[in-house]
Design a protein around this nucleic acid. Structure first.
Length: 565
RNA sequence: GCCCCGUUAGCUCAACUGGAUAGAGCAUCGGACUUCGGAUCCGAGGGUUGGGGGUUCGACUCCCUCACGGGGUACCA
């Protein structure tokens, strides 16, 4: 990180303590309370090395380090050396950098030349796009934007569920009830066929066997089934693309499971040549006892392939095609074991890049304490949720800002923003309870709150009228909230890095709430545009910086930042 | 049975990866000057971080154990 304060501390402390610079940087932390300082170096781990009490070490080092021109004070408290940065220098540095770089602030070249495929969204054909699918979609999309921010070249892959036994089920259902149910070629009707199958199969289990046979036929190239499959696939894909357009999400590749169909046999052969497979209970499996995992099934007893086989094939294909740096799968945590098995098999095949394959898992989306089951027709359509949210946003605009231009467009940006942010505000590993009142809430820690703050920042700039200069007397920015705000802005690049380290957009969401709420407190307490020209000029620099960072942060989550709302 | 994940204020979540006094929002109640946007802000109440043990200078965070909830566990994905 090119932060001169950190660099200086690392340099000096590492010289005084003989610790490698990297370790010093890792130990360095930010105190919980600003009164304690801006950076702190804990000396506890040095106690053994120097055979002295930590607080004595801290006191000694603190007295030896000169403040120089970057720091205003360096003192020890307990076992910490606390550094107080020169606030004028800080403002000059942070605000100067943001104004110069604009939306590029926080970018980095670290990922240059490295490719990362991200497998996300990946809905199943013949099922409508429900609120359950949104989680993978928005997490994957945000990770994509974040990696691109650091110059990685990202390939968004929509690994459609367009192959497998479920198509056997659809074919059976179509042949039996297609004429009465499938009239307009819509996803809803396809879905009705699918649920009809499951209803009937409960009464008549023989249908399951029929479905297996139909899929087997499909896999072997049966013409009629092939045509049906293409029809089903097209209906669904058109529908999904419409939804993605609303969300403004695009994929570089729609390589679904069927895409790997022709390569699967080769994978099976390779596994056999490498003597990794065995026959067990009539099926072809890779035994994984030595890893304490259940065996990975490669082929069923009827010779047709399985999910795992396709994922192994897809991983190999992605490595050959993209020579990836990392290979991500944004898929629910119910598939943890599956990915463990797949990655382990790939590793057994001798591919060390298996270690760079990462399952970015996430918890269930539940509705009123119930897990949504698409098999039973228990599903809430994403489009209904978005419509409701957009309507609500429209109503609120009508109430509060009826003169607004482009009301419809703004209502969409805010309504969709509310839903997307609700999904990105919590860490991925937690189950997400879909509660209407919470998803459609526009107050407090929500998307519209961030957007509102952004609109407010824009409106200040409009009111100011004058051009915002990139220079000002930074010593005029020394109020408590001003300094907090500058420090939060300074933390933006680090936040991006932290979000990526954990594959966790929620880290950025939390950050943006902190930024917005700190600004709002400031705004409430201090009049920004006043008669004092010099001071106003300096404050407007801060306003502009906050606006730039907030907008960019929202963009990285996949939210729009309207200038008025 | 075995394996994974989770458990923090009434509810939904944070806590910079082992650091200093565990913080926000929602809901409830009370308030905001001489309004740059009240979708905002301020205040109040609310906690044995599921229970118990351990590791160490220090534990919401790591280890063991128990409880509760969820998921997975061979031909679905």
């Amino acid at each position: 990180m090119n932060n001169p304060f950190v660099q200086e501390i690392v340099k000096v402390v590492s010289r005084k303590t003989d610790l490698p610079p990297q370790q010093v940087e890792q130990l360095l932390e930010i105190p919980p309370d600003e009164k304690l300082g801006d950076y702190a170096f804990p000396c506890f781990s040095l106690a053994k090395k120097f055979k002295k009490a930590p607080d004595k070490i801290a006191a000694e080092l603190a007295s030896q380090i000169k403040t120089g021109n970057l720091f205003s004070e360096i003192k020890s408290v307990g076992g910490y050396i606390n550094f107080f940065v020169d606030k004028v220098k800080l403002a000059e540095l942070v605000l100067g950098q943001i104004l110069k770089q604009d939306s590029n602030y926080g970018s980095d070249a670290i990922g240059k030349g490295k490719t990362i495929p991200i497998d996300y969204s990946s809905p199943n054909i013949a099922k409508p796009f429900g609120i359950g699918h949104l989680r993978s979609t928005v997490i994957g999309h945000s990770l994509k934007l974040l990696f691109e921010k650091l110059s990685y070249s990202v390939v968004g892959i929509n690994h459609l569920g367009d192959w497998g036994t479920q198509f056997g089920k659809l074919v059976v259902a179509y042949k039996k009830w297609g004429k009465e149910i499938l009239k307009q070629d819509s996803v809803t009707e396809l879905y009705n066929l699918y649920t009809k199958f499951h209803e009937e199969a409960e009464k008549n289990p023989a249908l399951e066997e029929e479905a297996r046979l139909e899929f087997q036929k499909l896999e072997k190239g049966d013409k009629e089934n092939r045509e049906l499959w293409e029809k089903f696939r097209k209906i669904s894909l058109d529908e999904f693309k419409r939804i993605y357009k609303i969300l403004e999400i695009e994929f570089e590749a729609y390589a679904g499971e069927s895409f790997y169909e022709n390569m699967i046999e080769q994978t099976v052969q390779e596994l056999q040549e490498k003597k990794l497979t065995q026959i067990s209970q009539d099926a072809l499996v890779v035994n994984l006892d030595q890893f304490n995992l259940p065996p990975c099934l490669i082929k069923k007893k009827d010779e047709s392939t399985l999910y795992a086989t396709r994922d192994i094939t897809a991983a190999i294909y992605r490595y050959k095609t993209y020579n990836f740096y990392k290979n991500l799968y944004v898929v629910g945590n119910s598939q943890r074991l599956h990915f463990q098995q797949v990655f382990t098999v790939v590793k057994l095949m001798g591919y060390n890049w298996a270690d760079n394959c990462i399952h970015v898992d996430f918890g269930w989306v539940k509705f009123e304490e119930e897990i949504l089951s698409s098999r039973k027709g228990n599903i809430i359509l994403l489009e209904d949720v978005l419509d409701k949210s957009i309507n609500l946003a429209g109503q609120i605009i009508e109430e509060k800002n009826p003169e607004l231009e482009n009301k419809k467009g703004v209502a969409e940006e805010v309504g969709i923003g509310a839903v997307v942010f609700a999904y990105l505000a919590r860490r991925r590993n937690k189950d997400f309870d879909f509660v209407w009142e919470e998803v459609l809430n526009f107050e407090g820690e929500t998307g519209p709150y961030l957007q509102y703050t952004h609109a407010r920042l824009c409106s200040l700039q409009k009111k100011y009228e004058k051009k915002i200069e990139d220079r000002a007397d930074f010593s005029l920015l020394k109020g408590k909230e001003e300094i907090s705000l500058i420090k939060i802005l300074e933390d933006f690049p680090r936040t991006i890095q932290r979000a990526l380290d954990g594959y966790e957009p929620a880290v950025l969401s939390n950050y943006l709430v902190r930024l917005a709420s700190t600004f709002n407190t400031y705004y409430q307490n201090i009049k920004i545009i006043t008669e004092e020209e010099e001071k106003t000029r300096a404050k407007m620099l801060l306003v502009k910086s906050a606006q730039v960072v907030l907008k960019e942060g929202l963009r990285l989550l996949g939210l729009k930042a309207p200038e008025q709302m």
